[in-house]
Design a protein around this nucleic acid. Structure first.
Length: 195
DNA sequence: TGCCCGATTAACT
DNA sequence: GTTAATCGGGCAA
C-alpha cells in the first residue's frame, strides 16, 4: 500500500547532478513557515555555465553555492526582489536550482495579504513573487533545506515535465535548462512547446 | 571610487 | 509590445 505521509527530501536528494535534481523537484512540495505549495517551475545553474552566479568563482554573495548540497542560496535581484535557490551536487560544483514558480496550496490568505493581490495565479508565479509570498529574504541565505522554517516533500504522483530555455538571461540563453509541469496554470511564463 | 548591468516585476502604450 | 523602478555585485582604473 502506498505511503500516505509524503517523504521529506533529504540532503542526499540534492547531492546529485543539478540536471537530475531540477526536473525531480517538479511536483514536490515546498513550505516555508507552513506557507507554500507545489513546485511547478525551476531552472538549473552550474559553475561551468556562463549564466550562473558561480561561473566566475566564489565571492561573498555566492559562497553558499560552493558549499554542501541541501542549503538555500538567496540573492537580491535587480536591487528589488529576492530569489530562492536550492544548492545541489556539493563538492564545489557550485550548482543550484532556481525556484521560479509554485502552485499555492498552503496559507493562501497569508500570501494574498503579503502580495496584495487576490488571484492565486499571481501569488507565486515568478521567483521574486514567490519569495514575497513566502516572505523569504537574504536573512535566510545559507539555511538548511531539511530543517525549519523549510519543509520539502517529494512528489507523490506522476507529473508530465517539459523543458525549455531559461528566462531573463542573456548568456547561454539557448540551453534548455528550465523545467516545468506541463500545462500548469501557475508558471511564470508558458513553455513554447507544450503539445 | 566609479561604472555597468542584472537568474524581475508592474505599469504603461 | 515597451520601460521605469532600484541597488548591490563585480570588475576596471
Amino acid at each position: 500500500m502506498p505511503s500516505r505521509s509524503p517523504k521529506r527530501l533529504s540532503r542526499g536528494f540534492f547531492s546529485r547532478s543539478v540536471h537530475v535534481v531540477a526536473p525531480d523537484l517538479i511536483g514536490a512540495t515546498l513550505l516555508f513557515g507552513g506557507v507554500g505549495g507545489r513546485l511547478v517551475e525551476v531552472e538549473a545553474y552550474h559553475h561551468t555555465d556562463p549564466a550562473a552566479h558561480s561561473y566566475r568563482g566564489p565571492t561573498e554573495r555566492n559562497a553558499v553555492m560552493f558549499g554542501p548540497a541541501g542549503y538555500a542560496y538567496v540573492y537580491r535581484s535587480y536591487g528589488i526582489h529576492w530569489c530562492l535557490n536550492f544548492v545541489c551536487e556539493g563538492e564545489g560544483s557550485a550548482a543550484a536550482v532556481l525556484i521560479r514558480a509554485i502552485e499555492p496550496t498552503a496559507g493562501l490568505p497569508i500570501m494574498r495579504r503579503r502580495r496584495g493581490v487576490a488571484d492565486a495565479r499571481l501569488l507565486c508565479s515568478g521567483p521574486g513573487r514567490l519569495c514575497e509570498a513566502l516572505r523569504i529574504t537574504g536573512a535566510h541565505n545559507g539555511l538548511a533545506l531539511d530543517a525549519p522554517p523549510f519543509a520539502l516533500y517529494a512528489r507523490t504522483d506522476a507529473v508530465d515535465i517539459v523543458a525549455g530555455p531559461r528566462i531573463g538571461i542573456t548568456k547561454a540563453a539557448e540551453l534548455p535548462w528550465r523545467y516545468g509541469e506541463k500545462g500548469s496554470r501557475f508558471l511564470s511564463k508558458p513553455f513554447r512547446r507544450e503539445a
